[in-house]
Simulated scan of single mutants.
Amino acid sequence: MMGKAKVPAWSGAVTLQPGCLVFSGAVGTTELHAHAAMQVMVVTAGEVQLRDGHGQRRSTRMALIPSRALHAIHGPEATAVFMYCDPDSPLACGLRARIVGEDQDHVDGWIAAAQSSPPVRQEARQRLTGDQDPYAWLADPRAGLSCHPAVRRAMDHTQRLLGGPVRLQDLAVVVGLSASRLGHLFAEELGLPFPVYLRWARLRRAMELVQEGTSLTKAAHGAGFADSSHLTRVFHEMFGLAPSTVLRSIRWAAPESDGRLA
């Protein structure tokens, strides 16, 4: 009797950069998920299969996956670099402009956007040739655009409040706008509603705490989640995996650049 086929496991290094989270290593399998980040995928060996929310599947070595795009990943015997660019980073703003309309929801659009994007192609060349400065292209001032000043102030204030409640109404008072206007600006500038941005910001903070050696439970509370179960649900929503699965197989790596991703 044949046993179950082995499910490809994730293993590799995770780097928390200002403005970007980077995974580099062996690619496993995820369930359907949608994160708040703009994801750049560059496969360095083999091919990765992407599935969109419409059930379309494609094998590729390069993709640009937009914020909130429903997708799943399967990468048997593949290695890759995944760059999750924070939705408020200049880089994400620039990449978001490269994929619009219906292409945002379809795997063919993600692949085409990557192939036509000079920054993604440059990243692929540097990764495949072992360039010693793999983030050099991110220093290009043309890589992205600045967010609306009110949105930037609201995000800066949010970072100081992540350990507790964060309400859009309170942020609106701080920046001198109505809550409805500030919510509209978040959707317009970042391409996602404020609650989604907030969940991503909390998730980032929790990962920073875990990297520093904090337990998952304490990291959840430190990032403003109700408990570790709440953190697990959001992590699964954003990455299609349980955090415990990832923590067993990844190592934390030191940043490779001087913060130019911000």
Rank of each mutant, 00 (worst) to 15 (best):
R96V: 00
T29I: 10
V7D: 08
V107E: 07
Q49D: 04
L145Y: 07
A187V: 01
D88H: 14
V22A: 12
Q49G: 09
A154P: 10
R233H: 10
H236D: 13
R127G: 03
H54Q: 10
V166Y: 08
T60H: 04
A80P: 05
L168M: 09
A223G: 14
H236C: 15
L177H: 04
S178G: 15
Q104L: 04
T29P: 01
T79D: 09
E237A: 13
C85I: 01
T158C: 15
G222E: 09
L95A: 04
T15P: 00
A150F: 05
F225H: 06
W110F: 12
R121I: 14
R251P: 00
A9P: 01
R57N: 09
G222W: 08
A220E: 07
A63M: 07
S59G: 08
P76I: 06
L185V: 00
W252A: 01
V120F: 02
L64Y: 00
K4S: 04
T30F: 07
D156R: 15
V175G: 11
L171K: 04
R167L: 13
K4C: 02
G75L: 03
P90D: 05
S244F: 00
D156T: 05
A187F: 00
A187D: 11
L70D: 06
A80H: 06
R57K: 15
H106V: 01
G163R: 06
V27M: 13
H157S: 14
L231F: 13
E212M: 08
G25Y: 12
A63V: 03
G130Y: 12
